[in-house]
């Protein structure tokens, strides 16, 4: 299965996020470090560094192709899906809080959940881009 230049770039952004955020959230779930700012910042820095390295490698090794109208359509559809999902999740959380579900939820958990939503939405956007590159897409 041959990947286009744009797909390779997105895979280079997507995989480090899945692996490193997966590791981070697994450790949080195990209760090893709660939401220590240091480990979160460390995770973010590592993700950024690996993503930059992946982008440089793709740019150096793969044949460059400019983005065209199909790439832009796929980006638009993925962004729309991710944004609508974010709205749904935010309203769901607001409903949980206002309906009294916040009892026992500490600040750390709120921060972790907020980060989880951001990461989830970004992964949904990238995942949608990767899927749509392989599927039929129409305006």
């Amino acid at each position: 299965m041959a990947f286009s230049y744009q797909e390779k770039l997105v895979w280079g952004q997507f995989l480090p996020m899945v692996l490193l955020y997966g590791y981070y959230f697994a450790r949080v779930a195990e209760g090893r470090h709660g939401v220590a700012v240091g480990s979160l910042v460390g995770t973010l820095v590592w993700i950024a560094v690996i993503q930059v390295i992946c982008s440089i490698l793709v740019a150096a090794l793969a044949q460059r192709e400019p983005r065209d109208e199909r790439d832009r359509l796929i980006d638009y559809k993925a962004f729309k899906l991710a944004y609508l999902s974010a709205i749904f999740v935010v309203f769901f959380v607001m409903w949980l809080v206002f309906s009294g579900g916040q009892a026992g939820i500490g600040r750390g958990m709120v921060v972790t959940c907020a980060l989880g939503v951001l990461v989830g939405v970004e992964m949904l956007r990238m995942g949608t881009i990767l899927v749509l590159h392989r599927m039929s897409v129409s305006a």
């Binding site: 230049y5 192709e65 400019p66 065209d68 109208e69 199909r70 039929s136 897409v137 129409s138």
Partner: peptide
């Protein structure tokens, strides 16, 4: 001025 992937998708009827 398109990508090979787009030409492939058009040929396969997966993109108008």
């Amino acid at each position: 001025g398109a990508t090979r992937q787009t030409v492939l998708a058009i040929e396969a009827g997966k993109y108008a």
